[in-house]
Design a binder for these strands. Structure first.
Lengths: 159, 159
DNA sequence: TATTGTTATACTCTATAACTATA
DNA sequence: TATAGTTATAGAGTATAACAATA
């Protein structure tokens, strides 16, 4: 990844079109772009790729989940998950397990090392953007409500 | 891109770890992931790749901008911008122009066709997420203020 | 027949490094 | 020497299609 970015949020030039006072959607888009570099640098520190990081983050430390569910969480095709899981498995972070009732399904479990790395990742992920953490609790709560409503209303999050 | 996703926001399985009531940052991360598929499908409709779409969006219809500035807007290395611009140029969407005072710099201008496609893109980009558009104007304004403050506070947006 | 995961393939995205042409 | 953009390269991310094993 780009090593020049700040550890918490990358410095991105403002786009040519300054957003208007109520132009909230373009702000979201730009926010997403700025997060791309940030996430890359967070994962870089743990020597994993961005998608490996997302997988590690999405896995449940207490409960195995199926490959197909991970594919949905990562919003990509199952064929790609195979490669991502392969690499995490070769690093010793996760393991594939079979379940008795359906031998087609492979469940993914985090190893102890995987859990430790996942904890590091989530710590950095949650503590890094000071600008968000510094928001007043009420504002953060408002923001969470809005984001959750948006995700739920489109079926991207279960109520 | 994945053709199964909805036109406005993809249906993504909730992650194994349900976010808490004030767990705003994980919500942002998930939001980013859900936008990835959405942006891909928006660009698919216009027969451009996601990064070509971002470039088209970042370009100024009224004013040429330098390659280097586009690289910053896209949060990627200048070497990659060459290829992205090449493709947009071969599609007839943009053109490289030289400026007199420094012949190393190449300025990017949108062609009429590029402007038209950019307009289509921005229309879909802005109108698509009904969940955001449906928010009360005051809430949208609050949200815009929060996002802008976060971006500005980290130098990702000029005040 | 349908589904889960894999393999094979082609393309896009990405950073690094070496290069050119300017300054 | 330094900078703007290009080329070359290697690796990561992505969707599609064909496949094996299982249901």
């Amino acid at each position: 990844m780009n090593p020049d970015v700040q550890a918490d949020l990358p410095s991105v030039e403002a786009p040519p079109n300054e957003p208007g006072p109520d132009d909230v959607w373009p702000l979201f888009i730009q926010f997403v772009l700025s997060l791309k570099s940030w996430w890359g640098s967070v994962c870089d520190d743990l020597d994993i790729t961005p998608m490996q990081g997302h997988a590690l983050r999405a896995l449940d430390p207490d409960r195995p989940i199926a490959m197909s569910l991970l594919a949905e969480s990562l919003a990509c095709e199952p064929s790609n998950v195979t490669g991502i899981v392969d690499k995490l498995e070769s690093r010793g972070f996760i393991a594939r397990q079979s379940v008795g009732h359906d031998r087609r399904v492979k469940m993914l479990v985090l190893t102890d090392e995987g859990k430790a790395t996942r904890t590091l990742l989530r710590e950095r992920m949650e503590t890094t953007p000071e600008a968000v953490a510094a928001l007043p609790a009420t504002t953060r709560k408002q923001l969470a409500t809005i984001l959750r409503d948006v995700l739920i209303s489109r079926g991207a999050l279960k109520p």
